[in-house]
Amino acid sequence: MNSLINFGQYIPTGSVIHKLDPRAKLFAFLIIITSIFPAKNLLQVSLWIAVLISLVYVTKISWRIILRVARPVFFLIAFTCLFNIFYGELYRALFTSLRLFVLMIFAIMLPLTTAPLELSDGLDTLLRPLSAIGFPAHESSMMIGMALRFIPLLMQETDKIIRAQISRGARLDQGNLFQRVKAFFPVLIPLFIIIFRRADEIATAMEARGYDGGDGRTRRKPLIWKFTDTLAILIAIILAGVIFML
């Protein structure tokens, strides 16, 4: 009966990766990211691409979905690429972009395979030590989880507002950069109003259901560390180590 409500980016397929403890996934992700950043040759990046392809295969999520979710990221990558071409050589620009692309797709796999509240739980436990020095560990984790849950919804809203303003004759794709930025105000202003209203409503709804911060909150399925979780982290460390040596 635990079916998907169709919110958020989470795509449940019941794969091994989905079943991993969110803490293990976050930790493995951290290892992989820190290892891709300093990658300096094409061999290393190619190997990470091979790892990525195997990972996607194991998660049973189709590339079509992944690339669709990644679409906004392409702009960032294209921008980085252009910026690098401008200030450096072509090979370097393409290499940096490719590396960034691989990194981003790894990053996207996290919310695709982990339900938002699960991810919040994982982050919460990992960040808990920081609350000793006054860092709002639970609050920040909950915030990130909620943000992930609302991203697709806000994308839909943005699309609707763009359509409505185009219907009123807005020319969003014409003119110089300044004119284009200015032309986007009719989209941004309503979007911000909607975001604030939604945030207010969801906060009210959460309070009405007895949410009072993390203290005293229990879980229907408490996080349980399994052998596969240890194994996942070991695999990540070995991969990162081996590829780093090359």
Binding site: N2, F7, A115, R149, R217, R219, R220
Partner: peptide
């Protein structure tokens, strides 16, 4: 608040 039905319904009793 949650992505799955049961996780969402569980929110209040969890709190």
């Amino acid at each position: 608040v949650a992505a799955m039905v049961e996780d969402d319904v569980a929110f209040a009793p969890e709190n």
